[in-house]
Amino acid sequence: MLNYLQHLGASGLSFFQRLGRAHILFAHILGGIPSMLPRLSLVVHQIYSVGVLSLLIILVSGLFVGMVLGLQGYNILVDFGSEETLGVMVSLSLVRELGPVVAALLFAGRAGSALTAEIGLMKSTEQLSAMEMMAIDPIRRVLTPRFLAGFISMPLLAAIFSAVGVIGGQLVGVGLLGVDDGAYWSQMQDSVDLYDDIYNGVIKSIVFGVVVTWIAVFEGYDAIPTSEGVSRATTRTVVHSSLVVLGLDFILTAIMF
């Protein structure tokens, strides 16, 4: 019993220690942003590996999610004789929820894990130590540009996901199931609000971008510098950021809509 309590206490303490370290690191990363401004090429290179390389999976998943929504939505709506509102259903589910959330989950799996693995590997091969010994702050030189790249890429990826999804829904709904093309778009435009829906969706994806990249970067930087430690950290990045994205999504939805 006492052992169990001790174990509980120890894991609680280590949890709060990690949380504290994560916040200190976050402050440090943000502190490095001003020094990044004259060196945007560093950020551009990270946007390539974080954003451009995630593009394919985002495009494909967005298209298929949109197509599935079109198919499922049609089957439900046709029972009520209101298949004209298919566009509304597809676009609202994408813009409000699926776009930001699924894109963030995919982003965590594709870019987040890669970030953790890369930084963890740099740590285990002493590259970060070497930078420190060269009087270069590895947090500013390595972590800040990656963080900024995630912060910039995530909303763009989510927007691409939603846009492609709306087109996918149109392909299925209009092309395959015979919903009127004009009704698909005009009903959508009537019901989707720029501020309530799209703007809030973008805010969601920005929050997710910050959180996922933060977790990924922290896990990499905090990883035990062995191959086992790095692989564990990579797993943790995907699991933790997925959970946090889903939890935050609930909170944000409750606040916004």
């Binding site: 740099m122 091969t125 002493e126 590259q127 130590s129 070497a130 010994m133 060269m134 009087a135």
Partner: peptide
Amino acid sequence: RKRMGMLFQNGALL
């Protein structure tokens, strides 16, 4: 540290 050079065990090249 700018006046110190250090060689790590495996080079630690970027």
